[in-house]
Structures are given as structure tokens and as C-alpha cells.
Simulated scan of single mutants.
Amino acid sequence: MIRKTGFSAAFAGIFLTVLAGAGHAVDGGFDLSPEQKDRVRTEKSASAIEAISKSFKFVDDGKLTIGLAPGNPPLSTYATDAKTVVGYDVDLAQLVADSLGRELVVVPVAWADWPLGLQSGKFDAVISNVTVTEQRKEKFDFSTYRKDELGFYVKSSGSLTSIKEPKDIAGLKIITDPGTNQEKILLAWDKQNVNNGLKPIEVQYYDDEAVKYLAIESGRADAVFSVNATQAYKAKVNGKTKLVGTVSGGWPITAEVAVTTRKGSGAAEGITQALNDLIANGKYKQVLDRWNLGSEAIDKAATNPPGLPNS
């Protein structure tokens, strides 16, 4: 059963309560200041610098120019001054810039515009939750840095504690995002369950992000299945939900997110080396934990690994 739901007046009181609580928790849970005094830094890496091809031309001498699409915390969002971009992607970009002995320059860009901006030389690389796919590999090089992970989140005070495999969702009311990989996976799991004689799920879609979580709080839905990074942020901010299971965004294939550079530019190997140095010295994990993304850590960065197949 599929249901699309919008804002309900019955949720108004809960809505205001959650917003008030979320605003307080943002101040106490994450540093969204433009100063970023606790940002993790590292020393430059001779091996990473050496691995950058001598033919690679940076946008500006002594700088690393990174394109990213703000507006998706904790990955990237605008700080309290409404103009400085902060978040996990920015922190990682800073570490890569440090490793290469360069000053970081962040260029905000609309998601739809990053491919053209990168190909035209507007920035040296993109760090903006770009998943490795075989189609994208035809035009770009990749250096992996994080799992592409989807998460099941439920009411923090509820009795549901684990969703790991298809049978665990049987009979549940689950919210997801239309036209996405998570919807595709959820419907595939449901079909498998029904074929095995298990109860079907009820899929819910919400136009309003805040109301989505009110549905969980009120018991109108049992779980949200969506991008883990953004849900992890919300869970830490408001304390109303908890993680009970993760699934690769490319299920049944493992998917990873990567720093994206121009195809054949000669930058990818150096960036991959920088990332592996950061994994080895612990700085990589510190930044993940700073933004409540520890579950998305990878053991080793790779250059142009197998990506999600062409659909």
C-alpha cells in the first residue's frame, strides 16, 4: 500500500514542539559557526603531493579549489552568518588541501551544475556526495572517501531495534523518498517478502521534511528509510529518532562516495593518497565523528573502483 501525505492540522502542536527542540539541539550538537574553531587540521603529505601529476594545472597557484553544493546538513550547509559553507564535506576538503600543502577555496555550486563546472576548470575537484557510477566514470575520475549509505530510523523511545534484511520490514509503515534508490530498494524488499508469504508494507511519502518526522513521533509511521547522513544529523539534533539499520545505497551492490576530478587530469591518485594518509593518521575518522557519520567510514580509499552499473 502506498500513501502520499502532506501536513495535517492534527500535527500542529507536535510540529512546533519539535522545531523548538531542534533549534536548541543544533546549537549544542554541531558547530555551525563561520569560525569553525574545532575544525580538524593535518600536516602536508609529501607522498600525496608527489602523486599529483606534474601535468595537472590547479585553478590557482598554492590553492585547492573545491566545488560543492550546500544545503544538505551535515554534509554541507550555510553557517549562522548565512554565507560561509560548513559541514563534513568542507572539513574533508580542508584536510585534503592541508595534505597537499594548499589553501582551501570553496566554491558553492548548484548540484546540477557541478559536472560542467568541473569540466570547464572552474574548480580542481568536487566534494559533494557524488556516488561512483560506471556512467560518471566515462567523464570523471574518482577517489573514494565514504560509504553511500541509506539508513532506517525509528522513534528513539520505540521498541523497534533492528532492521537489517527484507523480512524485518514486513508489515511496517515506512516513509521513503519517491523516485530514489531508497524507494527502489524498499519496494524490492517488499516484493520479496510478499512472494515469501510475509505481510506487505505501507509506503508513505511526505512533501514536508519536518512532518515526515512528526509521523514517526506520533506513531503514524514506523520508520524512515532515507539517506543516512542527513538522518544521522537530525537524530543527533533532536534526539527523537535512532538508527536501527543501514543498507548500501547501491544495494545489492556496495556504493561509495568519492572526490570527483576531471577524467585523466592526473589529480585522482594524489587525492587518493591524501585520503589514505588521513585514514592512517586518524584525522579522517575524527571528521566523520565530528558530524555523526562514523558508520559511513571506509577502510581504504580507492581510485576509480567499480561503480554502480548503468541502468
Rank of each mutant, 00 (worst) to 15 (best):
T5E: 14
I14F: 11
T17G: 15
A22Q: 00
G23N: 13
G23P: 11
G29Q: 14
F30T: 00
D31F: 00
L32W: 14
E35G: 05
D38Q: 15
A46I: 01
F58K: 00
D60M: 10
L64S: 02
G67N: 06
N72R: 15
L75H: 10
T77M: 15
A79L: 08
D81H: 06
K83C: 09
T84A: 07
L92I: 08
L95H: 07
L104G: 01
V105G: 00
V107S: 07
G117A: 11
Q119Y: 07
K122V: 11
S128C: 04
T131V: 05
T133M: 08
F140N: 00
F140S: 03
G151M: 06
K155T: 02
K155N: 10
G158L: 08
S159M: 03
E165D: 13
A170N: 02
I174K: 00
Q182V: 08
K184C: 11
K184I: 12
L187W: 05
D190V: 01
K191S: 06
N195V: 10
G197L: 01
P200Q: 03
A210D: 13
K212A: 13
L214K: 12
E217C: 12
G219Q: 08
D222A: 09
V224D: 10
S226W: 11
A232W: 04
A235D: 09
G245E: 02
T246L: 06
G249F: 08
W251C: 06
P252A: 03
V259F: 05
V259T: 02
V259H: 01
G264L: 01
S265F: 02
T272L: 04
K283H: 13
L288V: 13
W291Q: 05
N292D: 15
A302T: 15
N310S: 12
